[in-house]
Design a protein around this nucleic acid. Structure first.
Lengths: 346, 346
DNA sequence: GGCGAAATCCAAAGCGGTTTGGATGCACGG
DNA sequence: CCGTGCATCCAAACCGCTTTGGATTTCGCC
């Protein structure tokens, strides 16, 4: 185990200058093919790999992307977040970038960004979980730190780069489907509505209902962290009420599973007595596939979003003068086993 | 926005040498209290923060911990992995360390470790998802890269640092509970059994059964990625067989939810007709709490494990000559709504 | 044969910190 | 009055790489 072969040693062994060796390895043209080959072979033989800290210091680029994730957001978006990270991580690897993740207390998020900028920890960041009153984009712009938002920051769509699915349209289509099936009492189990995505979904839901001359019933609209019990408890409560819904529109598979459990516990049958449409982020451990998926859903792969977000960001970093650009993904509406015509009233 | 205040500028503004300023900021003793105060104030005023690459290069420590995660493992342990990461991430933040995550192709894992070592990308790594025939510990030892295993590497327990729950004992106790309730046909829905944790759980299960003079039925033991459909499909198949189980021992809440779904679809009632015990990693988005949790479970917080693993690793890095040390966590056995006495035979 | 361009290669100057090995000044004891 | 010791502070080397600004050699061509 020869330890610590560095450029100096390598160049000495080759009777070449560090300059030439460095250039040979990094593909610069002013090096003869023969020399380049010699260098490559010796580097390989000695197991040389450039020290990344040194390279970063010299080039001024940290070759890393930061994800700062406050605990609260974290707990809320748990699996979705991971899936996104996985997608982004693959893109980073492909391009030689590192991914650094900072888990911070909620009130430390801004400070975390400042540190990333001032200490040059990363060349850019991904902003997760944009909320309604959002100012991170302003801070980041001020810090001169390139960023891409996963989701959208309302009011700043044109001046920021972002990747998002069409939340409003997806939930509008889903609601339309339920209405077409004859459902009139439709419940919405939404995510936390201070989050941008949840607001848009709600709007889609309400738009669709109003378009039929109906009006959404506040008693049937809930908003919270998308856990399993959230789905179960709320569904249960509504199903036991005087005027229960015949369909649920749910913001997450996880909560939808809870809704299905509640329906079962009430002795009803999902897809017959009560319909469910859920949004499906295509989480790998909750596959909702097969010829006829369990849940009728609006589907958009969050992993894919992660890949694309990373690509967007790396492109921005490569060309700092580029205009902000965005990607608006359309969710598929997929018919599964959890929807059926509204039961006849009796 | 004064950009790029570095040590040099800061020291000039103070009419001090870089040495003194550096020492003042880093708490070395050979600096008068008054000077230290002056330095701190000016640094604050100018918004100075040391460039991390430069510091890393100078100190030779990268102040980062690596997590390399092959795609396959990733997809398997999805939410569990994230929760662990979250715990570890908090510990890192507290100690000023960065967390860097590399998502790599399966056959690139070893290469990833080599790069971390040779390019000095991280001061240590966490090894995830140890399998049966495992050699990562050998590689890492060879690379001289400190590491902590989440789980255990069979045969290398004493020479490696690890943190793990008592898988065997947990599943033995769970099985005992079911046996005590009169169940004799108990199914095991395990994780992938080339993984160390799954092997141990199976052993616990089999030991308990054999201890009663019974013998485990191979037809009732399954092993796979712990998805929801895995639980549902396999439970369904077994429940429809000639000699169905009356209880299920499941390796993950996610699959347990699938089992519950299958039970419901068969018109049976969980906790009455069929019992379930699951392992509960205390995932935040799948809370199984309340006075009487939905599922009877063996519980061990994987997030806590993450915190502790990180602490162990940081301690190793701080004292490179320390002996390997480990943490063996005991899972709680918690009675919920999903278990009851075995139904009388008819 | 001589000259300019092209092809190669190199010494040295950063990048922004930390750390070594002294300097300098001052109080104190003899 | 001078040597000592301590408290402060500093100049310069160093970490390992990239990159600037030449220097040297080679080669085609008139």
């Amino acid at each position: 185990m020869s330890k610590g072969v560095n450029l100096k040693i390598l160049s000495q062994r080759l009777n070449l200058s560090q300059t030439t060796v460095s250039r040979a390895l990094n593909g610069y043209p002013e090096v003869s093919a023969e020399t380049r080959k010699r260098v490559a072979e010796m580097a390989d033989k000695l197991g040389y790999a450039p020290n990344s800290q040194a390279r970063r210091l010299a080039t001024g680029r940290s070759m890393a992307i930061g994800h700062v994730i406050p605990r609260s957001i974290h707990e809320m978006m748990n699996p979705i977040f991971l899936e996104f990270i996985a997608g982004a991580g693959e893109t980073y690897s492909k391009h030689g970038y590192d991914m650094i993740i900072s888990v911070v207390e909620d009130d430390q998020e801004e400070e975390a960004y400042r540190q990333i900028a001032s200490r040059k920890k990363a060349d850019g960041v991904i902003v997760h979980g944009p909320a309604h009153n959002e100012n991170r984009h302003a801070i980041l712009k001020d810090l001169n730190l390139p960023f891409v938002v996963h989701g959208r920051i309302a009011g700043a769509e044109s001046e920021t780069s972002w990747i998002d699915m069409n939340n409003r349209r997806a939930f509008q289509r889903a609601t339309d489907l339920l209405l077409d099936l004859g459902h009139t009492r439709i419940a919405l189990l939404n995510g936390l509505e201070h989050m941008d995505f949840a607001r848009r979904r709600r709007r889609g839901f309400e738009d669709a209902i109003k378009a039929r001359g109906l009006s959404p019933d506040p008693a049937l609209m809930r908003s919270n962290d998308m856990t399993e019990p959230y789905g179960c408890d709320n569904a249960m409560e509504m199903l036991k009420s005087d005027n229960p819904p015949t369909a649920f529109l749910v913001s997450s598979m996880i909560s939808a599973i809870g809704v299905a459990r509640a329906i079962g516990q009430c002795g009803l049958i999902t897809g017959k007595d009560v319909s469910i449409i859920t949004h499906d982020d295509a989480l790998s451990f909750l596959p909702n596939s097969g010829e006829v998926p369990i849940f009728t859903c609006t589907r958009s792969s969050v992993r894919y979003a992660g890949e694309k977000a990373a690509e967007l960001l790396l492109a921005m970093i490569a060309d700092p003068n580029s205009e902000p650009s965005s990607l608006h993904l359309d969710a598929e509406l997929i018919i599964g086993q959890s929807t059926g015509p509204a039961p006849a009233k009796d």
